[in-house]
Design a protein around this nucleic acid. Sequence first.
DNA 1: AATGTATATCGATTTTTCCCGATATCCCAA
DNA 2: TTGGGATATCGGGAAAAATCGATATACATT
Lengths: 100, 100
Amino acid sequence: MDQLEIFKALSNKSRLQILAWLKEPEKYFPPQEHADFHEVGVCVGQIQQKCGLTQSTVSEYLGILMKAGLLQSTRIGQWTYYKRNEKAFEALSDLVKSTL
Amino acid sequence: MDQLEIFKALSNKSRLQILAWLKEPEKYFPPQEHADFHEVGVCVGQIQQKCGLTQSTVSEYLGILMKAGLLQSTRIGQWTYYKRNEKAFEALSDLVKSTL
DNA sequence: AATGTATATCGATTTTTCCCGATATCCCAA
DNA sequence: TTGGGATATCGGGAAAAATCGATATACATT
């Protein structure tokens, strides 16, 4: 749990937006063909479409959120699905409350 | 409570360090002449000495933490004292837990 | 009023982040 | 085994942040 890395990951409008979308995937994304939102999350392409950023940027941003521990990913076939790691958010909340 | 602004303010090693010091002033700072730690906090000069950054940088950083709502300041004579706004940290913790 | 001390602001330079296009990799289907 | 689609990585240009020195402001003392 690297505080600084986490806060840096959260210091970007688009990345915050992605996290918000991933909180309620069924609300923000069309149904997916190959996987279930709640099991594995949302694939990169769908996230990219909503972002309006390029594929490479979105992929990089998802990587940043991953490295910070805020997302987890699952590869299924040609798709990589990302979902929130809710435990990390709880841990972050606790960290802010007690040690920050 | 501007999420993005808060996370940006927290995205810097020195600023995180300052917040940690201000959490327990009596532990990290020598006694002050003109004011009490718990009432008003610590003056800029003392913070600067521990930081090893220039006066202008520290002043700016304190300003950034202020604007984000994480610190409050009190001017007494020629000194400006800064202390943590603990309510902001609680609010941030809640935000991370519930809405982030 | 003049001086000294504490802090804030300004302008400039270096470093980091943002974000892109191009390309590489990985996987599936024909 | 070749072609296409999905994602990751690479290299770079533009924008923002970090950090400094110099200067301005604000206050206290003489």
